[in-house]
Amino acid sequence: RYSTLRKQMSALAACRLQLGFRGRTYNGQPVEQFDAWTANRETGQKTLWPGVLVLSENYFSELVENAVPLDNRALHALKGSALSLDVYTWLAHRLHRIEGRPVILYWMNLREQFGQEYLGKNADKDFKVSFLVALRAVLAVYPQAHVKQVTGGLMLMASPPPIPY
């Protein structure tokens, strides 16, 4: 919703982030300037969509250096499922950074990351079923992804990103 987006964008602009990757950290304010939803009372102009968002140079450089390009066709195909979109972006980010041996992630860890809203008696089972449905959809649009279901979780293997750099 517009009002929720507006609140979240304002919170992002006011936040202070600490990001880390491979022993390097970024500490600071990622947003240097954020002029949004301003109205001009003199001319009667109504509130406008954000006009200016300026990222700090360091933050922008980190984003460019560590970004993973996503396939817009995949995003479009997965648009009906927030879980599928989350799994796609997570795998796109994670798989090409695996070096050496595969990584095994257990269902409990995956549920903590992706399925905290699953509650009740069968929460673990319900999450696993939903996650596997989402994973099948993701693998259909990201065929280069090497992910295998193993006892107790998933095995992630080194894979190219969805779109080459």
Results as ranks from 00 to 15, higher is better:
P164W: 07
A137P: 04
L135D: 14
G28F: 00
W37R: 00
Y88N: 05
S3T: 05
L139R: 14
T151Y: 08
G23E: 12
R136E: 15
K79S: 01
L132I: 10
R24N: 00
R22I: 12
P162M: 07
A36C: 09
L119Q: 13
D86L: 01
Y142V: 02
A145I: 14
Q149A: 12
H93V: 00
G100V: 07
C15M: 07
T38H: 15
L78R: 00
L135Q: 15
W107I: 10
R94Q: 10
R22L: 13
S84N: 03
E65C: 04
L19C: 04
Y88M: 04
S81L: 00
E117V: 00
L85N: 12
W37E: 00
Q116V: 04
A36M: 07
G120N: 02
R73A: 06
V64R: 13
K148R: 15
V103A: 02
G152E: 06
N122F: 15
W49R: 11
Q8M: 01
R1T: 02
L135E: 13
T25I: 11
T25N: 05
R16T: 10
I98Q: 09
F21Y: 08
A123Y: 08
Y118D: 05
Y2C: 10
V87N: 11
M108Q: 10
V103Y: 08
E62L: 15
R101I: 08
H96S: 09
T38Q: 08
L78E: 00
P50T: 01
W37F: 05
T47G: 01
K79A: 06
L91I: 03
R6T: 03
L12T: 13
T25D: 03
G152D: 03
E112C: 01
Y26R: 06
L132T: 00
K148S: 13
S159L: 04
R22A: 15
F60L: 06
A14T: 11
R73S: 03
N40D: 14
W49H: 02
E117F: 00
W49C: 04
A14R: 08
V133H: 14
Y2G: 10
Q18K: 05
C15G: 13
T25S: 11
Y26C: 04
G120Y: 07
Y106K: 12
Q116L: 00
